[in-house]
Design a protein around this nucleic acid. Structure first.
Lengths: 155, 155
DNA sequence: ATAGCTGCAAAGGTTTTGCAGATGA
DNA sequence: TCATCTGCAAAACCTTTGCAGCTAT
């Protein structure tokens, strides 16, 4: 088991103990599964992945546990337009997403200036910042290419 | 009727005509209602407001018309975490939101540096940007105050 | 005249809830 | 032991869809 996962588990355990919640095998199995893969997932795909491994969990427990993982900030929740909720492990501090409205592909981006902007904003509005998500919608590289080809062909 | 609203209506008309869609009274009534008030709204609150004025529209028509207004970019859609979809008129170019996770209040903010960041990102990733929304979650001024008072009282 | 729109109600898909049985503490 | 958690199924919720009647073009 790798080091990162251990730390995450310890954080989760600390959170559960602090709140007086139970440390059930299901909760750890779910955390384990989430941290076994990078990238986004939905409740549905998580349910499928665990079912495929013959680990039986109910959706109710998945929702319940995700709620806990959100609270202790080990998981982050995204709700894109016109899509069901997506989740992602919270190890990446940045959540800047380019979302293509044609092919639904999601690409992450980073820019150092954002950290400064956040700091200024927090101070200016006296707002204690916990999380931030930036969603930029538009048309990605690939789809732009496809559209261009289409236009050329129709000439 | 004010000038802004007239321009908006003209844009909508142009869009409907270009697409060959019908110019129904319901569609204009909905646009009218949306532009009569600033700020956010949900399908439910929009439905209520129109019902209160004895304007009978069905939810189906609301959803249908909102879809059109999104397409022609007169309205913007937000899906906050754990909440139903919220909409807002699109006249403000900025969609930077501070969302308090305790009282659910939403405050808008602006920062000139974001425009530059967007421009750089669009170029770097060859991404054609149509819209962007920044959601910053945390604890607002008021709730911070309340929490402080609570702590003081319990001492 | 007629294709497209509306309202209504029913269906759809995701998330939440209620409850009996199971299980950490 | 017993309060909390789980799994299951049903309910709730927002949103979409189907259809009969209506209406803008």
């Amino acid at each position: 088991m790798d080091k990162v996962k251990n730390i995450v588990k310890q954080n989760f355990t600390a959170y559960l103990e602090q709140k007086g919640y139970r440390k059930t095998p299901e909760r750890y199995a779910i955390l384990e599964e989430i941290y076994a893969h990078p990238g986004h997932f939905s409740v549905e795909t998580l349910f499928q992945k665990m079912s495929d491994k013959n680990y039986r969990v109910s959706k109710a427990t998945l929702y319940n546990t995700l709620e806990l993982l959100l609270e202790c900030e080990l998981v982050v929740k995204h709700t894109y337009k016109n899509e069901m909720a997506h989740y992602e492990r919270a190890e990446n501090k940045h959540h800047e997403h380019l979302i293509c409205t044609l092919c639904n592909r999601v690409e992450e981006f980073a820019d150092d200036r954002l950290e400064e902007v956040l700091k200024t904003v927090g101070e200016k509005y006296n707002f204690e910042i916990h999380q931030n998500m930036w969603y930029v919608y538009g048309i990605c590289k690939n789809c732009k290419l496809k559209m261009k080809k289409k236009t050329e062909n129709s000439l």
